[in-house]
């Protein structure tokens, strides 16, 4: 059952996007996420839709995989839409029933937040679907390198991420095995009240924890035996090289963002209202 969980959801394929440098992809993805907050008009969203469709098509990822990640936040999406529809009180009143009032402003914000959240997820899932977790780790390490100057333990952070990635499959297997073993001893995880259910997890958590310590000790021994002593003078096998793809992609992306910003500039009035609303409403900022 737990084995069905695929981590990182990398979708192996050979595409332009797959072959891009992970650092460039990561940076552009961040830029996209910021950029999407500057899009306020529906024309802007139409523009981004075209952009995303082109992006997905060129990445050779089946639409199914993208929709799957959107499905992951479906509850959040519905909540956002409902909260926006019922709690925004700007524009003209459309209908009223008991204490519920729906304004056209509410529908407008609900639609926009829906698109924004969906596109955020779509954009970032293009990154995670086309980049292996290992590449992402390397990209983060490489991009954070300048922070070494201010004594941020960049190497250690990257190592922790890399170790976590390599331990996760084993941990999932082990959890699965312990659950089965306790089930065989009559453990029941599906019935009873909350307290009972939480208590039912003790026989899983303790063996996992004990196993975790055992693993950690063995791993530490293995690392020490292979001459690990922190980041001093460490070299790396993997060299990340920028190729023409990265420059082309960056160029296209920048062109895209410049357009977005220009459109934003033309509609700055709306945007101020929008940002202001974020603070007033006090609900949606949680998500960002």
């Amino acid at each position: 059952m737990l084995k069905d969980v695929t981590f990182g959801q990398y979708y192996p394929a050979d595409s332009f996007i797959h072959r891009m440098d992970a650092r460039v992809k990561l940076l552009l993805c961040l830029l996209f996420m910021v950029g999407i907050f500057f899009v306020t008009s529906f024309a802007g969203f139409a523009f981004i839709t075209v952009f995303l469709i082109t992006l997905i098509a060129s990445s050779r990822i089946p639409l199914r995989s993208i929709l799957k990640s959107v499905k992951g936040i479906i509850v959040l999406l519905l909540l956002t839409v409902i909260l926006n529809i019922f709690f925004t009180k700007t524009g003209t009143l459309l209908c009223k029933w008991w204490i519920f009032e729906i304004y056209d402003g509410g529908l407008y914000f609900a639609a926009k937040m829906f698109l924004r959240l969906t596109y955020l997820v779509v954009g970032s899932s293009v990154l995670t679907l086309t980049t292996t977790p290992v590449d992402l780790t390397h990209a983060i390490e490489s991009l954070l390198k300048p922070l070494k100057v201010i004594k941020v333990p960049v190497h250690e952070i990257a190592l922790i991420m890399s170790l976590t990635l390599s331990l996760i499959p084993g941990l999932i297997d082990e959890t699965d095995r312990i659950i089965r073993a306790q089930k065989a001893r009559g453990a029941n995880f599906d019935t009873g009240g909350l307290v009972k259910r939480v208590k039912a997890f003790v026989p899983i958590l303790i063996p996992l924890l004990v196993g975790g310590f055992r693993r950690a000790e063995e791993l530490a021994n293995a690392m020490n035996s292979r001459c690990y002593e922190g980041s001093n003078k460490r070299t790396q096998m993997r060299i990340m090289k920028l190729s023409w793809r990265d420059f082309v992609a960056t160029f296209i992306a920048l062109l895209f963002f410049v357009t977005v910003f220009v459109v934003y500039g033309m509609q700055s009035k709306w945007a101020t209202a929008d940002v202001g609303w974020l603070y007033i409403n006090g609900v949606n900022w949680l998500y960002f």
Binding site: E174, R177, I178, A181, K183, A184, G186, P207, V210
Partner: peptide, 19 residues
């Protein structure tokens, strides 16, 4: 419940399930 009580199952490395 009764089935699993009557069919005992010992997994590989069963000591890892002690808690």
């Amino acid at each position: 419940k009764t089935l699993r009580g009557r069919v005992g199952m010992v997994f590989q490395y069963p000591e890892y399930q002690l808690f």
